[in-house]
Design a protein around this nucleic acid. Structure first.
Lengths: 147, 147
DNA sequence: GATAGTTTGTCAACATGTTGTCAATGTTAA
DNA sequence: TTAACATTGACAACATGTTGACAAACTATC
């Protein structure tokens, strides 16, 4: 019946993560194209909007599991594009808080609607409990690596 | 209890895929460093070794869910490094088959051992059935996008 | 066989990401 | 307070990836 051991399945999961990640990026690029955005820039907006507290550039990087330098680069570009603005951080002179401009909030809301419709189509055939299991497994893996 | 709907969970899964993907790449780079490889080049070796039939560059791309150009670039570099060699494909004059050199096979075997130990540590706290669910969910997503 | 459409290799432009380094800023401990 | 350590912004080098375009090679259809 089931001839594969746990390690083999784990390896398959890892390879599938790479594959799906790439495909999702392409999909995200298409989805954001009409707003002059890309998948990566959309993710930055999401990281800020989904957070309960104001975030600095380094904090955004930590939330996304990325280097602060990669985030800095995008934030600089998006600031130039009037999508982000930086405000004083009372706790740190250099590390300012990053905020969405009204224009970016507007775009983000539209993208959120678009994404929900897209997600509904994709997750139609997937059980909610299976999605939850997947989320937990991925979180466990990321926590275990991140040490 | 559970206030999140399916779309929200789906979104969390997507964000976790991005995060874990990045972390796995960093981990793969560290793991392959002693052999003068990178995570991406290791993946190329894996795609070829795990296939039942000889693969062309374009086919490797399709298996990995990547553009053939990205694969081509790496195969060219790895050919220069004596890790890959190309042999005639009776079905196509230009699209040759890509093979591992003995040296690459040797490295791949060592990496496989190393990876199994690493995977055992990581998947220790994860149920086999949950890993299988995760794999199936990811496959479903990638199939649905790939159309 | 000729023709139209697809796949492939090649080259180029560009976006994204890690890593390393340095000085400026914050934090901690003696 | 001061000295050691950690975090941050800034810059640079490099690896990886998508996309677009073009000609060569293959496939299918008439």
């Amino acid at each position: 019946m089931n001839v594969k051991n746990k390690n083999e399945i784990f390896t398959e999961v890892v390879l599938e993560i790479f594959k799906v990640g790439g495909l999702l990026n392409i999909e995200g690029d298409k989805m954001t194209n009409e707003f002059g955005l890309t998948a990566s820039r959309w993710k930055i907006l999401g990281a800020i909007e989904l957070s309960d507290t104001p975030l600095t550039i380094s904090e955004i990087g930590r939330v996304m599991g990325q280097s602060r330098q990669a985030v800095q680069r995008l934030v600089d570009l998006m600031t130039k594009d009037k999508l982000l603005q930086q405000v004083e951080n009372p706790n740190h002179k250099r590390a300012k808080f990053v905020q969405l401009t009204p224009q970016a909030k507007n775009i983000y809301l539209q993208l959120d609607k678009k994404q929900i419709q897209w997600a509904e189509g994709l997750s139609m055939d997937i059980k909610k409990s299976d999605l939850e299991t997947t989320r937990e497994v991925l979180k466990k893996i990321s926590d275990l690596i991140d040490v």
